[in-house]
Structure formats: structure tokens, C-alpha cells
Design a protein around this nucleic acid. Structure first.
Length: 666
RNA sequence: GCCCGAAUAGCUCAGCUGGUCAGAGCAACCGCCUUGUAAGCGGUAGGUCGUCGGUUCGAAUCCGACUUCGGGCUCCA
């Protein structure tokens, strides 16, 4: 008769033999791959103690998938070391949708290696190797892992692992060190790795995985460290889920704005101009113009004043703003102008450095400072579609979402300190309303706070600004996530993150509070009592960059823009040549209402014209044949393939105009 | 900036280990054709194989540098 213990299993108290494991409890449930005891995730093989609360962890849960992915990373590392015995192990944590493992190898992996590694992983999975946990003393671990320099480094960092590198905490936790042995059925240890766990019980518990790509990554995330070879993979609880994930990736690829931009003839990045510098073709420029026009109108309605400032300026301005002190790396190098030399090469006249502007705020400050300002003018909201140029590092440029030249829908609001909270709250409402009109309505907020290494000003002022932003963010009712150290050098910010049609999030609007630039520029206004006061400055961009937002919208809509933004809103398709005049007449009436309409008079056949318009994702195809002409009607074909025949022309026009005016998607 | 990969006609791509390798489809242009919801038929034109240099009797093919792109890392005021 063995000793009994009392435990709580999934909420129900039970009495079991001492030494009972979680695996015993959930033996019938094949989808349970780990257990949660109290707050900790543990292996199923862990023996339970008296009084513990045990919950099953399903493989299809967030925790379950993370464990599965972490275990798959182990299988990957084992496969790599079997094929490349000289490979040294870095770290191998689960990440969103998958996992990676870093290796130090003499030769980088190539795509063929990836296939071989994948095969080797399948072999290991087939062998049904057990993941066996074993606690080790630090010194013993050092001895056992003498051949793994990176693991040794992690042992040294134990406890501080969370700071050591993202993912390092998956290897060494804060408590005792553990090693996981991968044990073959005969009891032979096939492989081992320093790891905190937990893991799935055996390699056979990896139902579906795929290696995705190789890339280099700096050891512990620092540019100063050597680069390791990182292999990314994904793992899922079933083949179906894996396939669904791959389908989602394929869907994202279909929506890629760089691809759609070329297919829909919206924009391009000519090599001749340079990296990260887009040109907009007529159709892309039409969308951009519509976006700007609507935004402009909304800003007028909201009491903004419009300004316009140059693209380049003398260095002094950016010295004043401290951009050259804090941000010179991100700026294009200066143009040195106006220097004169005599015949001997001696400088007769000192030259000047001119810089392309990376931000508009210093220029707006000069507008503010151009004359005396009264409290009656505040809040003064200066708005500009300002073109800025940032010398992004060559490896980060990415389509329209990370360009070197782009247009900010930038405003700087100067207001009295006591008014800033109200102004910020109004601003947030304005931002969210406007974004919703562009078809985005699923948001959360992020509060980016000071990075002491990269900021100007004093702690107290930062604290005050951060508190106000936090308050406004919280009061908005939206979820507010912290982003420590993410602030600009001059102040904290709230950013609006928007979810798109397939659930990806994009950082769009930013609202930054700045007490320092007004000081640097010695901005002042006269208060009611005649005293001189310093205004607070709010930096804000709604789209962030118009180009980037256009890219985001392209992906959000998969190129099928709502009628008000669609570059071509209507294509008229005659069934045969003789129906063209009827459509021309309809087109004239649509144009008179401001609709962008084209009649396809090419000598393609009707079916081909439909295909062409469909591929261009034109919202409305208007067909006309004998029946329609006779009745003074047109026939609609919509993007989804549905049709509505014999619609009287006047009615058809109203339907289209109404959809454009209401900015709805169809 | 770092690592890996890529660059062939406007687009998508074929062209294997250097020697009929300058190719296809779509697009463009020219003809013919045209009646109801995603590709009618035929023809023509179009490329110093990203650029520059090297190896070689010979380079789209091998090597180097640069440019641009892609995937990551780092970065993103």
C-alpha cells in the first residue's frame, strides 16, 4: 500500500499514489503535452507533490504550441549537430508562429542543407526519443558543456538571462540549471542540451513542422558580437494547422504591396534614383491624392493651419534642435556649399553645410517664432504634408513601409501647459476617427517611454509627460501596452497600432509630447497676465508617412480599394463595338459627378475586357449590350463576380456616386 | 551597417557541370475577329543576360568589386 497524496486536477480534488505524474493523470488525453502546476509549466513526467494544483496543457493552446515549438527547436539542433558535428549551439526559443535555433558554423547553411536537416529531423521524430529532464549543478553543467562556448556563457548569466538576450531565458531559467537528454528507446542518450524546459514527452509528439529560412543573427542581439546562423522553423499541432499557417503566409504574399504596386501600376523604385526612393505612377498618385485631399479637409475642419516648408536647411537649424547631436546617423550627409577659395587654395569665404530634413518640427518652430504669439492663438496647430529624407541603413529599406524619402502628414500643436491634456484627448479621438474612415477600425495603443541613453532633458519633465500620455491613453478605453525605451530623444509618445484585414498590426499614428524643443527654440507666447510663457509642443502624424500608409492600405485591401480610393472607379465594357457610344454617354455623366471612369474600347473581346478589369480590381464594371441600350440601362459586374443587369443609367450613377461619397467598401 | 541569397525582354520565368543559349508565356504593336460576365486567331518588334573588371581560345554560365532587390540581424528620431 503506497503513500497517498491529495492534489487538485483541473479544479477537482483527487487522492492519488505518491509519485503519480501528470502523464498518469492525462494518459487518455493524447492532446495534452505538458502540465501547469500552480503557475509553472512542467513536463508531464514530473511527479506531483501533495497539495499541488494541476492543469493539463493542450498542444493546441498558446502555451502548448510554445512548448511544441521549443521542443521542435531541440530536434532541429540535434539534427544539425548530427549532420554538422562542429556546429556550436546558440539559443533556440519559440517565437510567434514558430521557433529558431542559432548555430555557430564555419560555413553558412544553404537551402540544400535545410532540406537535409529537415529529413534528419523527421528521422529523429520517428525514433520517438524521450525528452528527459535532469537537474545539474553549475560546475557539472560547465564540465558537461565544455564544448559549447555559448552555453557556457549563458550559464554565467543565469538569473539575468532575461536581459542576456531575447529567448535566452528558454535555456537557463532563474532557478537551478537543467539539461534535457534525448533518450532513444534502448536508453541510449542521443543528444543533450542545456534547457529550462518544459518539453513534449517524446519527439513523436511533434505532429507537423517545417523549416522556413536561414538568416544570420548577432549573438545575444548585439552588433558587436559575432553573427550566428539562425534557422527559422514553424511547428503545429496538426498537418492541417501547418498548412493553414502556410496558406496565411501565401495570402500575405499575395497582398504584398510591393507586388501589388507593380501589378496595379501604382509605383516603382527605379534603381536610377536610388534605394528607398519611390516614384508614383498615375494610378498610385491618384490614390495618394485622394488620401491627402480627404485628410486635408478633415484637418481644416479640425482647426489646423496649413504651412509649407523647404526640404533642405543650413546645419544650424538641426544644431538648435539637436538632431545633429542625436540623429546625424539617420540623416543624409551634408552638402557643403558657398565655399570660395583663392588661387592658392586658401579659403576666402567659409562654406555652409546644408542638410535634407529628416523631420519637419524645427521648421514649424520657426513659423511659430516668426512673430510674437498670444495665448489667444493657442492651441496653434500647424499642419504640413512634409517631405522628409532619412538615411536608413541599407539593410532595412523595405518597399513603401521603410523608405528613405517620404511624406509625413505632420502637425505640431503648440499649446499652453494646462491645455495639453484636453488637446491630447481631442487629438486621439481625431486620429482614430480619421483612420476609421480609411477602413481601419481595430486598434490598440503603445506607450513608448524614455531611453536614458538616448534622450535630452530631465527626469522630472519626462515623468510628467509620460504620465499625461498614459492617462490620456488609458481614458481612451483602448488597450495600452508599454514600450520601454521606445521614445524619441525629445519626448515620450503614444502610437496607434492598427490591425489589418488579415490580423497583422501596423504602427500608424504617433503622438509625441515634447517640452524640450520649445526650450531649445526659446518659443514663447504672451499669457493673459502679460507674462511670457513657454508652450508645450505635440508632434503628431496620423498616417506616419503617406507612402507607408498607402502601402498598408494596399495590403489591407489586397489591392481592391474602396471606390473612393480606387484609381479607376468604373470601367465600361461594351458587349460589341456598337455599344460604345451608349457607354460613352454614361461615362460623361459619371465624369460630371467626379467619377474616374474608363471605357475599354480595345479590340479585345468582352470576356477579356472583364478579365483585365477584374485583375486591375476595378470596383465597378459597367457592361452594355443590345438589351441595355434599348432600355437605357447598364449591367453591373462587381469585383466579387456578382452581377446586376438592366439597371437604369440614372440609378446606376447614383449607386456609384453614393458609394464614393460614403467612402464605403463594396 | 552585418550575414546569406538573387539580378536574363515591360512582367513572370527557362536556359544543368563555360562551346547553335539569346528562349517561352503574358503585356506592347499590326492585322483579322467581335452580342452577355475571368484569356478568340495570326503576325511583328523587343535583351551588350544589373554595371565594371578579371580568368579563358571562348563567359548569361567561373572569380572579384560595385549597384539594386529579397530574407534575417541590428536599427526605426
Amino acid at each position: 500500500m503506497s503513500e497517498q497524496i491529495r492534489i487538485v486536477v483541473a479544479g477537482a480534488e483527487r487522492q492519488v499514489d505518491a509519485g503519480t505524474t501528470a502523464a498518469d493523470l492525462f494518459a487518455d488525453e493524447r492532446t495534452v503535452i505538458a502540465a501547469r502546476v500552480g503557475d509553472d509549466l512542467v513536463d508531464l513526467s514530473r511527479a506531483l507533490n501533495d497539495g499541488e494544483k494541476v492543469e493539463p496543457v493542450e498542444i493546441a493552446s498558446d502555451d502548448g504550441r510554445a512548448i511544441l515549438r521549443h521542443s521542435t527547436a531541440h530536434v532541429l539542433a540535434q539534427a544539425v549537430q548530427e549532420l554538422f558535428p562542429e556546429a556550436k549551439l546558440g539559443i533556440g526559443p519559440p517565437v510567434e508562429n514558430g521557433f529558431y535555433y542559432d548555430f555557430d558554423v564555419a560555413e553558412p547553411f544553404n537551402p540544400d542543407d535545410l532540406k537535409r536537416i529537415e529529413k534528419q529531423m523527421q528521422r529523429i521524430i520517428k525514433e520517438r526519443q524521450q525528452f528527459v529532464r535532469r537537474a545539474v549543478a553549475d560546475d557539472d553543467a560547465r564540465a558537461e558543456l565544455a564544448g559549447e562556448p555559448y552555453k557556457l556563457e549563458l550559464i554565467g548569466l543565469k538569473g539575468g538571462a532575461a536581459d542576456a538576450a531575447e529567448g535566452a531565458s528558454a535555456e537557463v531559467g532563474a532557478g537551478e540549471l537543467t539539461i534535457y537528454d534525448n533518450v532513444r528507446r534502448g536508453g541510449e542518450v542521443a543528444w543533450k542540451d542545456l534547457c529550462r524546459g518544459p518539453h513534449v514527452p517524446t519527439t513523436k509528439h511533434v505532429p507537423a513542422f517545417k523549416l522556413m529560412r536561414v538568416a544570420a543573427a548577432y549573438w545575444r542581439g548585439s552588433e558587436k558580437n559575432p553573427q550566428l546562423q539562425r534557422i527559422y522553423g514553424t511547428a503545429w499541432e496538426s498537418k492541417e494547422e501547418l498548412q493553414a499557417y502556410l496558406d496565411r503566409l501565401a495570402e500575405a504574399e499575395r497582398r504584398d504591396h510591393r507586388k501589388l504596386g507593380a501589378e496595379l501600376d501604382l509605383f516603382s523604385f527605379p534603381d536610377e534614383i536610388g534605394s528607398g526612393l519611390p516614384v508614383f505612377h498615375p494610378k498610385g498618385a491618384t490614390i495618394k491624392m485622394e488620401m491627402e485631399n480627404y485628410s486635408r479637409q478633415r484637418h481644416i475642419d479640425a482647426g489646423y493651419s496649413f504651412v509649407s516648408t523647404p526640404h533642405i536647411t543650413k546645419a544650424h537649424l538641426f544644431e538648435t534642435s539637436k538632431h545633429l547631436e542625436w540623429y546625424a546617423d539617420g540623416m543624409y550627409p551634408p552638402m557643403h556649399l558657398d565655399e570660395e577659395r583663392d588661387a592658392d587654395g586658401n579659403i576666402k569665404r567659409q562654406g555652409q553645410d546644408y542638410y535634407l530634413k529628416p523631420m519637419n518640427c524645427p521648421m514649424h518652430n520657426l513659423v511659430f517664432r516668426s512673430r510674437g504669439r498670444s495665448y489667444r492663438e493657442l492651441p496653434l496647430r500647424l499642419f504640413e504634408f512634409g517631405a522628409v529624407y532619412r538615411y536608413e541603413k541599407s539593410g532595412v529599406v523595405h518597399g513603401l513601409t521603410r523608405a528613405r524619402g517620404f511624406t509625413q502628414d505632420d502637425a505640431h500643436i503648440y499649446c499652453a501647459r494646462e491645455d495639453m491634456k484636453e488637446e491630447l484627448a481631442r487629438l486621439l479621438t481625431f486620429v482614430l476617427d480619421l483612420l476609421a474612415d480609411y477602413g481601419l477600425d481595430d486598434f490598440y495603443l503603445e506607450l513608448s517611454t524614455r531611453d536614458p541613453e538616448k534622450s535630452v532633458g530631465d527626469e522630472q519633465t519626462w515623468k510628467e509627460a509620460t504620465q499625461i500620455l498614459e492617462q490620456v491613453g488609458t481614458e481612451s478605453g483602448l488597450e495600452l501596452l508599454p514600450d520601454p525605451g521606445g521614445a524619441a530623444f525629445y519626448g515620450p509618445k503614444i502610437s496607434v497600432q492598427a490591425k489589418d484585414a488579415i490580423g497583422r498590426t501596423w504602427q500608424l499614428s504617433t503622438i509625441q509630447l515634447d517640452f524640450f524643443e520649445p526650450e531649445l527654440f526659446e518659443l514663447e507666447y504672451t499669457a493673459p497676465d502679460g507674462s511670457r510663457q513657454r508652450p508645450v509642443m505635440i508632434h503628431r502624424a496620423l498616417f506616419g508617412s503617406i507612402e507607408r500608409f498607402l502601402g498598408v492600405l494596399t495590403e489591407h485591401y489586397a489591392g481592391a480599394f474602396p471606390p473612393w480610393l480606387a484609381p479607376v472607379q468604373v470601367v465600361g465594357i461594351p458587349i460589341a463595338d456598337q455599344h460604345t457610344p451608349h457607354l460613352d454617354d454614361v461615362a460623361d455623366r459619371l465624369r460630371a459627378r467626379g467619377v474616374r471612369v474608363e471605357i475599354d474600347t480595345s479590340d479585345d473581346r468582352m470576356q477579356k475586357k472583364i478579365r483585365n478589369a477584374q485583375k486591375q480590381k476595378v470596383p465597378y464594371m459597367l457592361l452594355a449590350g443590345d438589351d441595355d441600350v434599348a432600355k437605357g440601362a447598364v449591367s453591373f459586374r462587381y469585383r466579387d463576380g456578382t452581377q446586376k443587369n438592366g439597371v437604369p443609367v440614372a440609378e446606376a450613377i447614383e449607386e456609384i456616386v453614393s458609394a464614393v461619397e460614403r467612402r464605403v467598401q463594396v
